[in-house]
Nucleic acid binder design. Sequence first.
DNA 1: AATAGCTTCAACCGCTTGGAC
DNA 2: TGTCCAAGCGGTTGAAGCTAT
Length: 266
Amino acid sequence: MVKTPYVDKNGIRKGTWSAEEDEKLKAYIINHGYLNWRQLPKLAGLSRCGKSCRLRWMNYLRPDVKRGNFSKEEENIIVKLHESLGNRWSVIAAQLPGRTDNEVKNQWHSFLKKRATKRSLDHNQDDDHMPKRKRRVHQIKKSKSSPLEVGEGSFASTDFVVHGILESSDLSNVSTSFNEPCISNESTMGTYSNVTEVDPIMSMFANGNDVFPHEMLDESYGDLWMEPFLATNSESNSDLSLVTDWEYLFHDPLPDFEDEFHVSLW
DNA sequence: AATAGCTTCAACCGCTTGGAC
DNA sequence: TGTCCAAGCGGTTGAAGCTAT
C-alpha cells in the first residue's frame, strides 16, 4: 500500500518514506518546530519537498495521531458531519481528535459512503412526513473552492445552508507533547489547550446517542472561527446562542440538551 | 495454488487561500 | 490593488494486501 520510492528530475525524493527519513523529520521538528515547511527539508537533511514533509508529519508522525480502526462513534460523527458539511474533510477531522483529514477521507470513500447513501435513501422516503418548521436561511460567505452548499444528502434541495460549524472547539481531551498550533488548520484554529474535559456534546454523542448537534451561528455572533465554542456549561450560554434545526438536519428527535445549551429553534 | 478483481491507505498533485509587501 | 509565496485542502493515484473463484 505504498508508493515505490523514486527520485525525480530535480533530485527530490518521492514515494514511501523510509524509517530513517521519518526519524530525521521527527527529530528536527521536535527540536526546532516547523515554521517554514519549504526550508525544513533542507535544514533537516532530507531530500524531500516541504509539502511532502508537512504531509508526513501531519498524517503520520505527529504524536497525537491516532492509529487503528475507527470506532462506531467516530464513524457516526463522520457520517453526520458529512451530511451537513460535505467533503470538508479537514473540518470533519477537526472534530475527531487524533484523526487526520486524509484518514477521514479514506474512511469515507472506502466504507462510510455506502452507509451514508443507504441512510440518505432511507430518510428521503420519509421526507413528506417531516414536520414543517420555519427555517432561517443563513447567508454564507462563499469561497470559490469550498462552497458550503451541500451537494448531496437528504436536504440538498432545500433553502437550508449551514453557515459554519464552530471549529475552535476542542472536542477531546487531546494532549500533545508540544504546544504547537492546532495542526489541522493553523491559520484559523488557535492552539491546542490542555483541555481535560470532554465536550458535553461529544460525550453525549459518544455515549451512544445517534445524534450530533450542529450549531448554526448567526452572523451577529462574530467570526465563527474565533468564537470560543466550548459552551461547556450553562454559565456560558448567554454569550453564545446555539441555533439548530436539528430535526430537519438529522431527521432525529431533538435530544434533550437544552439544559446545558441555549438552543433556539424556529 | 494461482490469479483476477477489489479494497485500503499513504502519498502526490493541483488548486485555493491568506498574509506580506 | 496587484503580485508573490507558503501553507492548507481535497481529489486522485498507485501498489500492497485481501478475498473470491
